[in-house]
Design a protein around this nucleic acid. Structure first.
Lengths: 102, 102
DNA sequence: TTTATTATTCGACATATATCGAATTATAGA
DNA sequence: TCTATAATTCGATATATGTCGAATAATAAA
C-alpha cells in the first residue's frame, strides 16, 4: 500500500464523529474523573470509550476495529477487557503532515 | 454544526487518495517546474491540480468542491480558470489537533 | 457572433459505510 | 460447571461516496 493511501486511510478513520470522539478521548488522556499518567500511553477499555456516545456496543466495536486497522490505535486484551491506546508515533506523523512549509 | 463534526468533515475530505494528492500538492507549494512564492498562498488552477491523477475532469471538479465545502481549500474564478489555494488557518488548526499533550 | 478552452452540473451506477440486534466468543468468578 | 460480563462477529439495511460521460455554463479570443 502506498504511503498516500496509508495516510488517507488514517484520515478516513477520523472522518466519523464517533471515531473522532473516541480517538480524541484516548489522545487527550484525562476523561472526567481520570488522572493523567504522563509516562505511559493512556489506556481505556473499549466499553469506557463509548460512554456518552449513544451507539450500540457492536457499532463501537466496529469503530475500534477501524481505528486499529488504520494504525491509529493499539489494542490488547487484558482479562475480560480490551485495552486501547493511541500509537504515539502516529501522532507525530499526522501532526507533521500539516506542518509542511514548502 | 458542532466543532467535532466540522473537524471530522475536514478529515473526510482528506480521506480520498485523489483529494489528498491535490491537497498535498497545494500545500507543499512547488509542483515540478513551479517556483515557490513564500509570501502568498500558492495557487493552482483546477486543471493543473489533476495532472497525473488519471481521473475525469468532472470527478476532479467534484473533489475540489468537497475540499472547498470542508473549508480546506479556497477557490476563486480568474478568467477561464479557477484558482485554488489552501486556507492557511486550517493548516494550523489541524496540525494542533495532533499536538495535544494532555 | 462563433469557436475553443476550462470548469461545473447532472443522472446513473457500482461500491463502501454506519448502524442495529441477535448470536457467538473470551474471560473471570461463584 | 454454570453464570455474568465484556467484546466481537454476522447478516441485514439504509445511506453516502467515487466515478464516468454527456450536457451545460463561463470566459477569452478570433
Amino acid at each position: 500500500m502506498s504511503n498516500n493511501k496509508r495516510i488517507a486511510d488514517m484520515f478516513k478513520a477520523l472522518s466519523n464523529v464517533h471515531r473522532l470522539a473516541v480517538f480524541h478521548r484516548l489522545m487527550t488522556c484525562c476523561s472526567p474523573g481520570t488522572k493523567c499518567s504522563p509516562d505511559e500511553a493512556v489506556r481505556f477499555n473499549v466499553g469506557e470509550l463509548g460512554d456518552g456516545l449513544d451507539i450500540a456496543p457492536s457499532t463501537l466495536s466496529h469503530h475500534m476495529k477501524e481505528l486499529n486497522r488504520a494504525g491509529l490505535v493499539c489494542m490488547e486484551r487484558r482479562g475480560k477487557h480490551v485495552e486501547c491506546w493511541v500509537d504515539p508515533e502516529v501522532l507525530n506523523e499526522l501532526g507533521q503532515f500539516f506542518s509542511h512549509t514548502g
